[in-house]
């Protein structure tokens, strides 16, 4: 096979993986930005999205329905969890927050096991998406191209949302100075709840998009949260552009690592993280606190 074609396919593979990771890492970084804490449950929400997507598609026969059901379920769960538990903890120690989100991750995993059982679940993609296209005369799955498009669209919409909407402005303001944001008449608690719900919706949508590729299984959440942590550390906690860069770096490192040096593939992500953090301890786009 033509090495250039091979390389191109790997680039596309890497981009599609980056896109999936972006969905979960972006929410993690937005939550960190405004709450200054890490949401350990974010991987479990991604996994819940995958299962909800599969269930919705099984029930309705429509893949589009899965892409609607998953973010709705994610947003509802995020909102309920933020209002009932997290909102009471901001004033306290961060460790309480971490424990509670860790507890949610465990509870969600067990709930999924109870509802859907321990076996991995997968559904068929609709015929148009299950097909292949030829890229430089080599076959490539259509669905991976769709993922790249979805990731790009998500990036664009979230960037516009952050820059152009009132919620985006308040999210940025509250990330920098929550006290003054409130003293200027804004309900910061409400902003936090909406950001948390949105971040969970994004993660769940990412899960639903990943389901046809990776299948919904109980290990999905813990696998993907580690990659998401690495991305957020590389990019710089709370930085939008850093998350984009981090997702691309991790997506490319894993894809090319797997392909060209499979023995070292597992270590690639960590080697990348350590290199970046040694050179720039705050991450690529991190700002000193």
């Amino acid at each position: 096979m033509d090495p250039l074609a091979l390389f191109t396919l790997q680039v596309l593979n890497a981009l599609s993986l980056s896109a999936l990771l972006f969905f979960i890492a972006l929410g993690l970084t937005l939550i960190f930005g405004i709450m200054r804490v890490v949401n350990f449950a974010h991987g479990a929400v991604f996994m819940l999205g995958a299962y909800c997507g599969v269930a919705a598609q099984t029930a309705t026969g429509s893949f589009a329905a899965s892409l609607l059901a998953a973010p709705l379920a994610g947003a509802a769960l995020g909102l309920a969890f933020e209002r009932s538990a997290l909102s009471r903890l901001y004033a306290r120690e961060h460790s309480a927050f971490l424990l509670v989100t860790f507890g949610l991750a465990l509870a969600l995993t067990e709930a999924i096991r109870l509802i859907w059982g321990a076996d991995a679940r997968q559904t068929e993609l609709p015929a148009v998406l299950a097909g292949i296209v030829f890229v430089m005369d080599e076959p490539f799955p259509v669905y991976r191209l769709l993922l790249i498009g979805a990731g790009g669209l998500c990036w664009l919409l979230c960037w516009l949302g952050l820059q152009r909407t009132r919620l985006g402005l308040l999210l940025r303001a509250a990330s920098q100075n929550p006290t003054m944001t409130a003293a200027l008449g804004n309900d910061v608690g409400r902003v936090r709840a909406m950001v948390f719900a949105l971040a969970c919706a994004l993660a769940a949508l990412g899960g639903a998009l990943a389901a046809p590729l990776l299948s919904a299984s109980l290990g999905l959440g813990s696998n993907v949260i580690i990659d998401a942590f690495v991305i957020v550390m590389i990019g710089g906690m709370g930085s939008f552009i850093g998350t984009v860069a981090g997702s691309l770096l991790v997506g490319f490192a894993q894809t090319f690592g797997n392909f060209y040096v499979p023995e070292l593939a597992l270590g690639m992500t960590y080697a990348l993280m350590i290199t970046v953090l040694v050179l720039r301890p705050g991450g690529l786009f991190g700002r000193p606190e």
Binding site: L169, L170, R172, A173, Q176, N177, T179, M180, T181, A183, L184, G185, N186, R287
Partner: peptide
Amino acid sequence: PEGRQIFPELTVMENLAVG
């Protein structure tokens, strides 16, 4: 407030828009 406490990463116009 004492010590200004403007939003360092927001533009002047965005600082004004927050309230």
